[in-house]
Amino acid sequence: MEVEARSGGSGASEGRWSQSGTSLPVRNVQALAGSAAELTADTIQRYIQPDVEGDTVLAEHSDEVPVIDLGKLLDAESVEAEAAKLRFACEDWGFFQVVNHGIPIEVIADMKHDIQKFFQLPLEVKNAYAQRVGDLQGYGQAFVLSDDQKLDWSDMFGLFSQPPQARDMSYWPNQPPNFRNSIEEYSSELMKLTHSLATFIAKTIDVDPELMEDKHVGQFLRMNYYPPCTTTPEKVLGFSPHSDGSFLTILLEVNAVQGLQIRRHGAWIPVKPRADALLVNVGDFLELFC
């Protein structure tokens, strides 16, 4: 499981986990994965990605994703060296892990806990927050545009979380009991972090920070659940290859399962989760500045 916070507009770094718009309703993957009777060869066929096995994956490079220390960016003695690392990460990788990010441990722990509890709720409870026609928010699967396209092996729950006036509270769950408060606190902390990162990135790439001042005020929170696939795990993807049409995407991985891969120099590199870090993706919109 994971939660993504996408900030900013539309506009390339690539990850397997964008386009915006509505989505056609599809069956629940979590329920499908848990039913041996329903998981037939015909059923799984729509989830099989034909080209996935031919991709080059450099598993030995999983420790190479740049790590940026926000504390060092705030320290006059270390800011120059750390800013150089940040510039390299943005321009050469399009991804970096940020440590000492300032979000309280308890805020992250509450968010992780409530995301897991939400996806453990009965399907009929989660479906009370299902996506509605013409809306990308809610529980379901995003970006399903036709009845014959290949599907991701995942379920998602999405919310417009910032600014507050953009929220549709009918999508905000009452279960688990503290979930709304967890989302509010985590979302607010992410806004602070995004502002800090945008300021440092602007200075690093020699762009006036004021030009970025209003580029990251919108925030879409996407929570993803990837159930195990017991039939053809090597042929399905939790999130098809894509680039994020955003300013920044900040990713929190709920557990230590290694699944995310990012594309660099024509190959896929697995990302080893760090308990003390958040993963940052330079979106298409920000890449226009780099």
Rank of each mutant, 00 (worst) to 15 (best):
A12F: 04
V52Y: 03
A277V: 02
S196T: 11
S170Y: 01
D75S: 13
T40N: 03
W153R: 02
G54M: 02
G140H: 02
M1S: 11
S10T: 14
S146A: 07
A33K: 05
L24V: 01
G283W: 01
L221S: 11
L221G: 06
Q175D: 04
V29T: 02
L24W: 01
Q258K: 14
Q219E: 12
F200P: 07
Q162M: 10
T43W: 01
Q45N: 09
D63H: 10
R222N: 11
V282Q: 01
S7D: 00
S146W: 00
V257G: 01
H242D: 02
R132K: 15
A275D: 11
R87T: 13
Q30H: 04
G134R: 09
I108R: 15
A41H: 08
M111K: 08
G102C: 06
P209D: 06
L248D: 00
I48C: 05
Y47A: 03
G15Q: 12
L288F: 14
M191D: 13
P241R: 07
Q219G: 13
L279T: 10
Y225H: 11
D148C: 13
V99M: 11
Q219T: 09
F220A: 14
R180E: 08
A83E: 15
Q120M: 09
H242Y: 05
P163L: 05
S78K: 11
F88T: 15
A41V: 08
S20P: 00
G34T: 02
V125D: 08
I262T: 07
H242F: 00
Q165E: 11
D147W: 03
P209T: 10
G71E: 01
V236T: 01
A12G: 15
D276N: 13
K235P: 00
F220I: 14
K192E: 09
V236M: 07
V29P: 01
Y171G: 08
L159A: 03
V125E: 10
L86I: 08
V282M: 09
I44A: 03
N224K: 07
V29L: 03
K85A: 15
I183S: 13
Y226C: 04
K272I: 13
T194M: 12
D148R: 13
G259F: 03
D63S: 14
K215I: 08
E53Y: 00
R180T: 12
L237V: 06
N127Y: 00
D114Q: 07
H265M: 12
Q97V: 10
M156C: 12
H265Q: 14
S187N: 06
Q116T: 09
G238T: 02
A267Y: 00
L278G: 02
H265N: 14
I44C: 02
L279N: 06
L252Y: 01
Y171L: 04
Q261C: 07
A166T: 12
